[in-house]
Design a protein around this nucleic acid. Sequence first.
DNA 1: TTGTAAGCGTTATCAT
DNA 2: ATGATAACGCTTACAA
Lengths: 339, 339
Amino acid sequence: MKSKITLKDIAKELDVSISTVSKALKNSKEISKDTKDKIKAFAKFYNYRPNNIALSLKNKRTKNIGVIIPDIVHHFFTTVFRGIEKYANEQGYNVIVCVSDESFEKEVVNMEMLANGSIDGFILSLSAETQLKNEFSHLKELLDQGIPIVLFDRVTSEIDCDKVILNDQEIAHEAVSHFINTGARKIALVTTEKFFNVSESRAKGYLQALRKNDIKVDEKLILTLPHDNDNATLIRNFFQNNKVDAVLCVNEIFGIQCLSIIQDLGYKVPNDISVIGFTDGILSRFSVPKLSTVAQHGEKMGEQAAQMLINRMESLGEEEPFKTEVINATLIKRGSTIN
Amino acid sequence: MKSKITLKDIAKELDVSISTVSKALKNSKEISKDTKDKIKAFAKFYNYRPNNIALSLKNKRTKNIGVIIPDIVHHFFTTVFRGIEKYANEQGYNVIVCVSDESFEKEVVNMEMLANGSIDGFILSLSAETQLKNEFSHLKELLDQGIPIVLFDRVTSEIDCDKVILNDQEIAHEAVSHFINTGARKIALVTTEKFFNVSESRAKGYLQALRKNDIKVDEKLILTLPHDNDNATLIRNFFQNNKVDAVLCVNEIFGIQCLSIIQDLGYKVPNDISVIGFTDGILSRFSVPKLSTVAQHGEKMGEQAAQMLINRMESLGEEEPFKTEVINATLIKRGSTIN
DNA sequence: TTGTAAGCGTTATCAT
DNA sequence: ATGATAACGCTTACAA
């Protein structure tokens, strides 16, 4: 077992000082060619690599980014993460991930854990509980300490920092307009509790599109579901009790569930009822018919967030105003809509 | 902007030495109650937290685990990751993830990047390319340097280290036996190129089960597909040209594709053809009929891997022999099989 | 051209 | 009961 070699080891071995070694390896012109060559050869032979921790301590920057997401087993977050990881790695940063599991407590604990020197900045999407409680002092404190934060997707206006969001309202509007343009009038919305600000925005777009087209909003056509799954009965009842031409679902699972239950009830998709979901995940691509859906371009969102964070970290001092970047979603028309 | 406070700051402020502060905060009995109280109160007020980087440098351990996975947008890896993250966090470890993207090069680069002090140990699943090249010197070197590694799922016998695997062969055997017990005789296998050792093991189980039941192996019933998707045509041809009673697929996507194409060709599932896939993901649960599948218990696998790694890191010196733990997969019988 | 020393934040050993 | 000092591995201003 040959342990990692340090500058000290090299110095001792070659009978020079540590700083000479350090300088030589950085190709400093202070050092004679001879010594440099000798030191470099030795270092190469023993595969010397500077210790990241020592560098971090010295430079007061870790080149690590902390990412806090509510759930990793979730296609959207997973694609965002991939975008973050990709961009960050390209820029020489590593990514430390913590999963908040939709819990406020975990979000706070994880962030504090990482904030004590482990990372240079955060990228996060708020947990459900954090949004519900509307409690953001942990973020405020970190920002106060000078740790930059980029919020994505599930953001809040209470916090002044860089953000990346989707044009949720607009795309929901577009989806509903598409329903209307293809003849639908009784348009349903299947959504989550409203403290999720993305659902709220999507609902706004839905309502806006109806109003703009002089379609009266029917509250009964808005189905609010408690969780991500096990809502089969509620959905079934909903479609049994309401005449619907089209339905917009705020996530992929709701979309797939509606698709399957609707067909099970004997309706034809898209002829009797059209369906559009959110998140262009694997479910949408392999359903029958394929689900029309809103692509959120998570990877792009992740890259954007990472870019904003790294920019801010590296331009420290210049104090640019905070920005909110909007990623434009795309409506992907597949078999579950009339196109 | 109130930056993080250090021991030095406290010492200066309270006019004591740094070591007194350090000891007081550790509740050392060397320090008088008075001073301790004063220091603790001050530290609490200013929300003092020791700097992780300094601790890492001092202790020569980072409490970070490096995780290298081939692909994050993949249900199985995602569940394993969740298991790792969960266990690691409970033990006070953070998780740094890098995605190898199935590339040998990236796997190597990422590992070297992290190995220079950023992490205390690795958990990884080999990239496709690494398996194809059969090149493991990067792992050997790290092990040589005393950095512990736990391999999971995609492992290799070339490397001597802790491993966590699935009983792939056994469960494939069980799946095929289930087909046989419910009357199938012409049993197909849809698999990937054989340098994936998991596919190889699953194929072995498939063959073994056939032989054990005196069913002649028909090479034509083994379909080898190049990638994870876009194989629709190959699959369609396969089922058009071969009379099949049942099909075992080595992953979820193949399973879902078969399910949908089979039905599209006019066969009834499971009455004409039964289907079993691998990975109990979201696709299997929302397909029509629901896909019978092999649950790989990724989360458990991740926890197991994290546990083995942390054990080894914390028992340094005791040199226990390397272990290979086997996670028992479960056959989940749903609508795509006769049960 | 090379070396010394201070410093990053902490802990531990050894004075006082 | 408290403090000085060295050490972890590295960089860098300053001496020599």
